[in-house]
């Protein structure tokens, strides 16, 4: 059993860190995991992405063409990865910055106004955690508790005052994903 997740957005949206949070949580809970950032000229264009693979057995390729889930933090990311998500897969769309719906009907779309939620919680840098929360709410790839524990374990102590807001961001993202899936069902 293997889940491939691509997190994509602008540089500065916390794309790589969002992936690392997932990677640390998977590692801390005894799963196999790989994290690899985008590697190529597209980095110079201002977009960033990373691929996280979580599995219960040795992981082969750290990159895949057709991921099971994509967190799209901006429009170019949705345009790039919507055609690539595997059929039956998941598209988590940052509706704050992406002004179009998902066109494909064979994937599950979850729209999350992540920037608005982050700003309401007091820090726009929480956008990535809202989206990670939505991933957790929409899939069983990792437990919410696991991610929160790992966030605490791997965030430097000087940032621990930010933990409650990060937990809240995760919870709100998860809540939206659960509601979306309940409506779809």
């Amino acid at each position: 059993m293997q889940t491939e997740i691509i997190v994509a957005g602008f540089g500065g949206q916390g794309v790589l860190f969002a992936g690392q949070v997932l990677a640390y949580a998977a590692m801390d809970h005894g799963l196999h995991v790989t994290w690899i950032p985008s590697y190529g000229p597209e980095m110079r264009g201002g977009t960033a992405n990373c691929t996280v693979i979580i599995a219960d057995e040795e992981i082969g390729a750290p990159l895949v063409k057709h991921p099971k889930a994509v967190i799209a933090l901006n429009r170019p990311s949705l345009d790039k990865y919507e055609p690539l998500v595997t059929a039956g897969g998941l598209l988590l769309v940052n509706a704050s910055l992406i002004d179009r719906p998902v066109a494909r009907e064979d994937v599950q779309a979850v729209y999350v106004p992540a920037n608005e939620i982050a700003e309401r919680l007091g820090d726009k840098r929480l956008t990535n955690m809202v989206m990670v929360g939505a991933l957790l709410g929409a899939t069983g790839v990792l437990e919410m508790n696991a991610v929160q524990e790992s966030l605490k374990a791997h965030l430097p102590a000087k940032h621990h005052r930010l933990l409650p807001a990060n937990y809240q961001a995760l919870e709100e993202g998860a809540q939206i994903a659960r509601e979306t899936l309940a409506q779809a069902a």
Partner: peptide
Amino acid sequence: DGSLGQMMEP
């Protein structure tokens, strides 16, 4: 090769 150098794994 370079992809090992970029990758994080436990």
